[in-house]
Amino acid sequence: MKKVNFNTFQNLTVSDELMNKALSIPETVEKKAPVSYVSRTRGLMTAAGFVLVFALSIFLFFYFGNKNVVSVAPPTAQKATVSTAASESPTAPATKSSEPAGEQSEKPSQPPTQVETQMSTDSEGNIVIITVITEITPGEQEPTEGKSAAPGKGETATESSKPTESATEHQDETKPPEPTEESHTQPATESSEPPWVAPTWHPITAPISDEIRTGEQYVYCRIYEQNGHLLGGEDLFDDFHKVKVDPNNNSVEYNRYTLSKGAYHYYFYTEDGTDFYDNWIFIY
């Protein structure tokens, strides 16, 4: 009797090619792993981004949706700050850092204005811009208040009541007024409180020697911009450059020109053209 077996299966041999394929499975899988890792990381970052944007939008909705209109307190007369709107005006004055505000109160000045703008949203989510323009003159400290507007949804309105008088005077500043001695010696206001005075001029002063103080009736001043441009014309001895010498004062002051922001180099010189003083002034 013959013995049976299953040698086809029992003595099966695995080819080298097949064995190598099986042995290289870990290497193949590990090569593909970074791709799936990148994909998973990208997916997580995308999901995190969506969550972040959603949370931010919720926060903004509740923050701006519930914020009420903020009332604007009228500025006080003692407030000695110039608003941004005022300082950005080309004819608007700026303070000279070397002089205190108290000295400037004695100078002739334009009626100072103060502009404050505040933006907020009301309970319905409308944007409200409140502009307050305050004109303060010595002895009259009641501010003229602008109007706040509450437009419809999505609208933005600004309503400012700029005094006509003030605007006219600002235009006049482009033409330098003739300074008089009275203007220099104008007494302080009668008000008990020192009035708020916007710095209109930038007095440029120079010390003068006794020889000039007693010997000269007028000296002159010329101002150069940073780019070398001469302010006020090329006739260096016309009235624009002329400065009256006070024999009782050991300094002269030139205040004909309103300076905007920048750096300026100025010279004082006598009638014979001799420079006796020069300096820089920086308007911020």
Partner: peptide, 28 residues
Amino acid sequence: SPLPSTDDERDISWALMRLEPKYREALY
């Protein structure tokens, strides 16, 4: 690919493959 059979032995793997899978698996 049958393995050569001797006179005393017979490879019946081919016969196993004729069976239904459930019998084949159990016998295998």
